[in-house]
Structures are given as C-alpha cells and as structure tokens.
Simulated assay, not measured.
Amino acid sequence: MTNATLSSWSQWDEIHGFSDQIKRQKSASEKKNTPVSIDHSNATGTFKGSAESNYVTTLSSCNCVDFSRRHLPCKHMYRLAHELSLFNLGAVSSGHVVTRDEAISKITQILSEDEIATFAYFCYHCGNNQASSELFPSDFANRLIKNRLAEEVSDIPTLLTHLRMNDIRKFLPTGVKSPMKKVDLISLVAPNVARKEIIFPDNMKCLTLHSDIAHLGHSIHRRLCALYPKPEQELWFDL
C-alpha cells in the first residue's frame, strides 16, 4: 500500500462518525454492494451501476450520483476501503439491535445526573429517527460520540440552521441580496458551503442521536425521566 493510497483515504478521517456517513457505511456492507472487481495494485474498484455502465471508484472519488452531489465518501468508496483493509465495516454490519435497557445502562454509567438531564432533553428534542439536532460543548459531545450515543451531523442545511442569520449571510456571493427568511437564505447558500467552513462558537459540535438508538429517542427520554425525576423536569420539554 503506497503512501499516496493511504493519504487518499486518510483525508476523510474526520467525517466517518457523521450520521449521514454511517448510513452509507451500513449500506456498503450489504451483499448487493459487493464489488464487480477490485484492482488492489491501483486501489480502485468497479461496482454495479445503472443499466448503461458501472461505477468506477477510487479512495478519493466515485462517479456515482451520491458522490457527485455530496463530494463525501459514498457506499462504494467505503466498500472499496473495506476490501483494501483500510476501513472495517464489521462494526456497522454486526446486525445487533440496541435495546432501550442497554442504552439506559450505558447512559447511567458514563453520565452524571446533570448530564443525564441534558441527554434526556436531547432525546426528547431529537425524537425518533434523528428528527432534530443540538449543539454541545466538544468535550461532552466527544464522550457521547465515543460511546455511540450521538453522531455528528454532516448535512449542510441542518448545520446552517444553528447559525445566526448574519453568520449565514457571510456565505452569500458578492452582490447577491439576502432573503428575509432564514429557510430561504439557507436554501440559497447551502449548495456552495463546505462542511469545514461552518464553525460554531467555542468549538461546539452539532449532534443527533446515534443511529444505534435513533429509534428509541422518546422511549429513552421517558425512562430517564422516570429514573431521575426532578421538580424542574417540565423544563426539559420547554427548552
């Protein structure tokens, strides 16, 4: 494996934990995405595409629609990296479904009571199936990510919703008038904004529930409220 090959894949190191990327990793592990062929010497692969042609994939690009639109690793790139022993898809394809009690056990082991209250609100706000997202201090966010309780959000429009209007306007092309509504402003600038350009105050990170427990958001919230009742508990709903 050449240094150039390793460098091609290492450029993506910081985004593998994003929720959208984990979805693609899971898809990459499916049998239907088995490569047609792998060229180990050149670190390239061919995958079944449309009726007209196959997809040609490298560790830095793919001619599939997903990569052309997002410019981030697609399922074909993850499968290629797995076949070249550069990325392990085993962790996301194990098939184990996390139960609510397993999630609660982990939460109560690694978080303080105050942090549990914060996480309970997070679960309520996100709901089920990653319906929303929140900003958290990086140290707390990293702990949630490490323990597979949360994932970083990579979707540009979602990230932009957490910025103030004036900060979003900085992405407007010169001479372009800003729309009055935030949603219209985001729609206008999002296609031309790179993830690395979006910086939150105090290095905060934008998280959503980890895909392992995304379907349990409301259930986890209710259970945590029952285990740790507080007089101000209703505030978790109003924040």
Rank of each mutant, 00 (worst) to 15 (best):
A4Y: 11
A4T: 15
W9G: 06
E14Y: 10
E14L: 14
E14W: 11
I15H: 06
H16C: 01
H16A: 07
D20I: 12
I22D: 08
R24I: 04
S27I: 06
N33K: 07
N33D: 07
V36G: 02
S37L: 09
H40F: 13
H40W: 03
N42A: 14
N42T: 07
S50E: 13
S53K: 15
V56C: 10
T57H: 03
T57N: 04
S68V: 06
S68I: 11
R69A: 13
L80N: 00
H82N: 04
L84F: 11
N88R: 01
G90D: 12
S93H: 12
V97T: 09
V98L: 07
D101I: 13
E102N: 05
I104E: 07
S105F: 10
E113W: 00
E115N: 12
T118G: 10
T118C: 14
F119R: 11
F119Y: 15
Y124P: 00
C126V: 04
N128R: 08
A131I: 00
S133T: 06
L135I: 04
L135W: 04
F136Y: 15
S138I: 09
A141C: 08
I145K: 11
S154H: 08
D155P: 00
P157T: 00
R169L: 00
P173L: 05
K177C: 02
K182G: 01
S187I: 01
L188W: 12
K196F: 14
P201M: 06
M204S: 09
M204H: 03
K205W: 00
H215Y: 15
S219G: 12
H221S: 12
R222G: 05
L224E: 05
Y228C: 02
P229C: 04
P229I: 08
K230I: 03
E232W: 10
E234H: 14
L239N: 14
